[in-house]
Design a binder for these strands. Structure first.
Lengths: 243, 243
DNA sequence: CTAGCTTAACTTGTCGCCAAGTGCTTGTGT
DNA sequence: ACACAAGCACTTGGCGACAAGTTAAGCTAG
């Protein structure tokens, strides 16, 4: 009889085990992990295997390492419960939940032509579309990048106003619009580019939740903006309850 | 004057660039990437840096490698548009969209006590709760693990029936329940354990979308099940439109 | 006795060599 | 001229030695 050995990836096994130790509180936040050599002996694998596993684990954001010292368990951040369902603005949502929200404008620039975005704005290829980026902080931590795409032909002063806008809704109201709706909201997962890693001060393997939507003036049916928000997935839990 | 050099992680820069080449179609699916040595020369970095970057990229599921041959761009899978909003069952959703859905039962076992799950089922600590796991395939590809937690005191035959159930809704109807609702639906992101990697045949860095919900009989207000679904995030786009 | 420096034993980080796998090219025997 | 095998030039994969950083103990000099 032949014995079939199903090879389970050693690295994944180590990550599983580390995860288990953390959730079972055998390893608490701030505590030092066993050294690479100790773990290598324990799992009977070369140090490099342990090392690769721990590097992956680090990039997911669960531990951090210091050369010459060791690896440590990160403080677990309590997930912020975010409701994706309501039609209220991000700012209002967060204030409602009692979070200390801060916003900083990071850019307001003319974007290069991109079919997908232009189409959604009903923009002509020769229109100027501005991308307004804001970084959202909660309790001082950057947690989301909020991109708004706005057609200059709809808002001629957007180039000047853009760098000052905190809430787009407030801006639209000032421009004479009052009731808003949106067509479709799509959710997908991406990884941060190096720029996004810097802005969100996160590692390359922290998944981002990308929420794409738009904002339409109910009265004129005009598309005011297209939005693309990138949330750090390790900081949130989303309530997507229907009612 | 002091020149401050902001160090951008070399690995991330390489990944950014590879991603860019793929979306800009400088590299098409099936095509071979430049070798590690070529890229190392191009970016003026040691081969190991390129290697680490490409390994990460591979684990995200964008490329695959063959020893002795090279690295190749994977076929981009067209994301399946899944509506998270409706109250119809997974099976119905998929059939409605015209996808070739297949389900296989992978386990039906008494679970160990876990406070969170037991609480949500209003189960006593001494109750037997069964975990019924099904693997969902679309076009032959495994794409989601569907876990249902059911209290034996509500469904005494669950141990025997479990391994045969494809649709829980159908099962509940057969048991005399007809109208269902759910309380809260939460969405979060996790990474696959090694078991989940095997079941979903995906790499360790493919994020999974975890959707937790429950099913309640409207008439009796009884909690019939707690569900935990793990979707491969690289295979889906979610429609979370409100209306 | 004490302050400060040296050293050694740990830690994680980097790099490069060689092993393993593939396929093309080349040479040889029929 | 063709078949086949050996070798070489490429690929990715794995591992081990060393570099760099940290800490604490112990020795030495004041």
């Amino acid at each position: 009889m032949e014995v079939v050995v199903i090879s389970i990836d050693e690295e994944s096994r180590i990550i599983d085990d580390m995860m288990d130790r953390i959730v079972k509180r055998k390893l608490s936040p701030g505590e030092k992990l066993p050294s690479e050599n100790e773990l290598a002996d324990e799992y009977r694998v070369p140090r490099m295997t342990v090392r690769n596993a721990l590097t992956k684990f680090e990039e997911r954001g669960y531990i951090y390492s210091k050369q010459g010292k060791g690896r440590y368990v990160k403080e677990a951040s309590i997930p912020i419960q975010l409701s994706l369902t309501g039609r209220i603005s991000f700012t209002d949502k967060m204030n409602q939940m009692g979070y200390d929200l801060m916003t900083s404008n990071i850019y307001c620039e003319k974007m290069d032509y991109e079919m997908e975005v232009y189409q959604k704005l009903n923009a002509d290829e020769h229109d100027s579309v501005y991308r307004i980026g804001r970084l959202r902080y909660i309790n001082g931590e950057p947690i989301a990048i909020h991109n708004s795409y706005v057609n200059e032909s709809s808002f001629p002063e957007i180039k000047e106003d853009g760098p000052e806008i905190e809430s787009m809704f407030a801006y639209y109201r000032k421009q004479g619009f009052s009731d808003f709706t949106s067509r479709k909201t799509m959710l997908s997962i991406t990884f941060p580019t190096s720029k996004e890693q810097q802005l969100l001060s996160c590692k390359s393997m922290v998944p981002l939740i990308k929420v794409e939507s738009d904002c339409i003036d109910i009265e004129s049916k005009q598309v005011l903006e297209h939005t693309k928000i990138l949330y750090r997935s390790d900081k949130f839990k989303y309530d997507i309850t229907m009612d």
